[in-house]
């Protein structure tokens, strides 16, 4: 299997989706001739032409709004928001129509589309280019929010998102775009949306994360496992909404302890929902309070001090140790 970065893996998924299904179109700012500011759409314009790989005017709401129209009319649009920090302009179209059409027409009109957007910090980017706001899209009924953590699952999840009958916000952790490579199968591969993945089995504690935080989390887990001989189960959420409570609950019923690691600010984030699910369904199995490691409730700092604020492996490690010792 070829070894790829996440950018290459996402690009592969886009190429294959457009080859497999002539109704798939891509649209966004600078995605065509320029192949995207991160080159995620490399080669698409040359291969599929300007009518299927559409360089749009600069307007996030209309990129989604027109994509909704295309989806209603039978296309499968994959829209790109250049950065998640500009995506809030599309929130009205997303809440008002993309997530709503299936419900309001009892399934007669549906909006199968994907909105891709790079999100998160760690690349020393300009203001508005480093936030993790997945919860804004996860809170909406009818919305699916997918966040891959590596090249292979990025490719498989994007392939699934494009085939999905519902609107999917596909958030790409941009600090993982080129940070490492994985083997990615050349042939079509999907992973189920709405399902978390147990990436490491264990019996003493469950550590849950997603996106770019998976790497510091796995480093911390390896440290604790080695230092203390602890058996740690690790869950990669992969889908934020709808959240896979069953996998989380089954794991915590087994381990009795859990830590949740998120890049987003602490309050009202996905970690809070994960903990609520555990409280709802696995409280009597708990041996310790569930901890969360998160960005403080501050605006994401400019890149000069951003590294100070994102959860680091040592903080995750300490939270795991304290939860084990409770």
């Amino acid at each position: 299997m070829p070894r790829m970065t996440m950018v290459q893996a996402i690009n592969l998924a886009l190429h294959q989706a457009m080859e497999r299904d002539p109704s798939v179109v891509a649209l966004g700012q600078d995605i065509g001739v320029n192949e995207g500011v991160f080159r995620v759409t490399a080669g698409l314009h040359a291969k599929f032409g300007p009518e299927r790989v559409i360089d749009t005017p600069l307007a996030e709401a209309a990129i989604l709004g027109t994509a909704i129209g295309m989806a209603i009319a039978g296309l499968r649009p994959v829209a790109e928001m250049q950065f998640s920090g500009f995506s809030y302009l599309m929130l009205g179209q997303y809440e008002g129509h993309a997530t709503r059409y299936r419900s309001r027409t009892h399934g007669q009109v549906t909006v199968p589309l994907v909105v891709r957007m790079p999100y998160g910090g760690g690349v020393r980017a300009l203001e508005h280019h480093s936030e993790s706001r997945e919860v804004l899209y996860a809170h909406l009924p009818g919305s699916k929010v997918v966040i891959p953590s590596g090249p292979r699952n990025a490719r498989a999840l994007l392939a699934a998102a494009i085939e999905d009958p519902d609107p999917v916000v596909f958030m790409e952790p941009k600090q993982s775009y080129r940070a490492f490579r994985e083997e990615v199968p050349a042939e079509h591969e999907t992973m189920p949306i709405g399902r978390a993945q147990v990436v490491q089995q264990g019996t003493d504690i469950t550590v849950i994360s997603w996106g770019a935080m998976m790497r510091p989390t796995l480093r911390a887990v390896a440290e604790v496992a080695e230092a203390r001989g602890a058996s740690i189960e690790v869950i990669d959420l992969l889908t934020i909404a709808p959240l896979d409570g069953d996998t989380i609950v089954a794991s915590v019923e087994k381990t009795g302890r859990a830590v949740v690691v998120q890049e987003a600010p602490r309050s009202f984030g996905p970690a809070a929902e994960v903990i609520a699910r555990i409280n709802d369904r696995a409280l009597m199995h708990l041996e310790a309070p569930v901890r969360r490691v998160a960005m403080p409730d501050v605006m994401t700092p400019y890149f000069g001090r951003e590294r100070l604020y994102f959860p680091g492996p040592h903080t995750v490690q300490r939270a795991i140790e304290e939860t084990l010792d409770f």
Binding site: T66, G69, M70, I72, P77, G92, H106, V109
Partner: peptide, 28 residues
Amino acid sequence: NVFPGLERTLPIAVIVASQIPHAAGIGY
């Protein structure tokens, strides 16, 4: 909002102007 057997006819849009980009996309 369910029009059995009736195609290419969208239901009422309540949010003012929000249907305009949809039309641009449908036309596309």
